[in-house]
Design a protein around this nucleic acid. Structure first.
Lengths: 192, 192, 192, 192
DNA sequence: CATGAATGAGGGTTCATTCAT
DNA sequence: AATGAATGAACCCTCATTCAT
């Protein structure tokens, strides 16, 4: 372990290593010792970089959301697709590739909404949700915000169901139905 | 009347009073003392009826799910509706009336899936999810299981979004879009 | 250990058992575990009766001072003495009998004055010091408050010196000199 | 010049900067980090000059006492005064000017006597106390050691009282009474 | 020489649980 | 049946101390 460290960089490294354990075990269920053991450092080191356990969680929320938004924005710029069908497919492929991230996100959302003193993090999540709507709007070219919200619902709900039962319904099955749905809309000049 | 009846009855009473605090604060975040205080009893009393904290949670999961399924079955029998549109509307009205329950359910699902030694409860939730599919099948007369799964996703995902931001998208907004979607399907003799 | 306890009475019992260890080892140097071991209870029990370590100390200060004042007042009522000489002797005898208490008091004064958030306890000590002046005034019939303050100084200072070196100067040696001093004052009709 | 000189010099500099924080916060209550922060150095630097925290305290006790004795001896040589009255006045003026030092000394005495493994420091304090008696003997020309001990008691006790309540009794008030007392002794050819 | 990152034992405190009453 | 006093392991966090740089 180096004694000369880029403090901020190492904080980020710790955070990125924390995401899984904190999301999957839960903020209240996981102890600082467990986190330290998982990261292969001492509790003292954890406290050298973060003032409190809550602090770790707060910075982790910021880190996870901002990193996610960033990646999604890169994705939505780079990969438009030519037909609505292709764009839906590309969207769901991307989501499928990030399914494990979305599970973490769901767990984190539950923790943030249940814990006290996390108003700021709630706001960050609310903002992120709006940004997701924006990204879908740009990517699919579907401008009805409520429709986009429902697409997000479909994704989040599928994540929930797959947490419960991994084989219940896959994101690719969902993708197929959504594609049909979208085609239907187009072919009927439906206005959302 | 044997005493066991009152004993069991009181257990149920305790469980029903526990649901909110356990769901909303989280299994790991809430203490036995908090639960006792909330219920206005001593911790000793809690341990007179349940062997461990884990036990309370396990029995609570069973209680909540069975009570829910029961109510949903009663609902689906009593209230068919004549057109698909009406049935969708009736379904969403029912869900809207039970939104706070669905939030609790979501929190409980997260806890069950994150905690150790809850295999039995996971199975119960998986079964409950299948039962939801059955109920929707009967109620809407839509037999494609994946489509029904997506309807459940829409509901669960909306619950998640409304946990994050109470005003983001209402279940009634969602209902409108789903109704249109369903009409579209019918008018096109779409086969799911 | 009884399960039916007079809560307040047991608190007092704990406090009286704590005085020595807290005074002699020092608030910051002694740990809750040490206190618990000394009292032959668990840390949990300590926290059942007192919210925090600070709380123990605060209640201990109140307890020690009030008990002391009470005893001194009883003493000063019961034992006037006929000549000034006898009264001085009686005063110092009493103080000598309480020397170990005065050492504790000195340590506690140092802790209170050094720790943060003990304004209330500082006031209690200030008040106690005034009460000591009153008691000496009544007991000796010497009304000059500064002179009484000096008598208290002599006592406190002797306690300090005897903490440093148990044999340096005894309270009875001091008593002799003070008696001579007082006789001198009387024989000269000195006005303080 | 060998480097050792600067090393020792810097140690003294550190010690003299430590006195206040260690005396006023207390050995057990103050942390190495706090000391380092106060001195505007790193903890590593502290450990470069002193092996342990205890070491700092031990050397600090030596430093404070020897510096004090030195200054007092200088004072007693340089400033005899012509009458007993003037000499008492001069003594108390000196003490008044050093009141804050005497407070620190009192705190340090309490810490040394309460902490373990400070036998050597206890001896140093005992010796210092004897040296104080010597100095008073020389300065006042009063040879009764018990009387000198009482004078020291008056000073220490006044320091304690002024720690409790800064305005209770000043050293100059005390000085006045002591002067009268001494005059009384002289005019009566009292033999101490 | 000086720094501050790293450590893990030990600090205050809370917890699930037991059991005398 | 119901209480709440008692326990001690485990929690979050701080500490004195070490050592690579």
């Amino acid at each position: 372990m180096p004694k000369i460290v880029n403090h901020e960089k190492y904080k980020i490294e710790i955070l990125s290593k924390c995401v899984d354990i904190l999301a999957r075990r839960g903020y209240s269920a996981v102890s600082m010792r467990e986190i330290a053991t998982e990261l292969d450092v001492s509790t003292g080191t954890l406290y050298h970089y973060f003032a409190t356990k809550e602090d770790i969680f707060k910075e982790l929320v910021k880190f996870v959301l901002s990193k996610d938004i960033e990646e999604l924005q890169l994705y939505s710029k780079g990969n438009p697709g030519q037909t609505l069908e292709l764009r839906v497919e590309s969207l769901f492929q991307m989501i499928q590739a990030r399914e494990s991230y979305f599970q973490n996100l769901l767990y984190i959302i539950c923790d943030v909404s249940r814990l006290k003193n996390h108003e700021e993090e709630k706001t960050l999540i609310t903002d992120a949700m709006k940004e997701y709507v924006n990204i879908i709007t740009k990517h699919l070219g579907v401008t009805n915000p409520n429709l986009n919200r429902i697409l997000i619902s479909v994704i989040l709900g599928t994540v929930v169901q797959r947490i419960v039962d991994g084989d219940s319904i896959s994101l690719s099955d969902t993708s197929e139905i959504i594609k049909d749905f979208m085609s239907l809309i187009l072919s009927n000049s439906f206005t959302f």
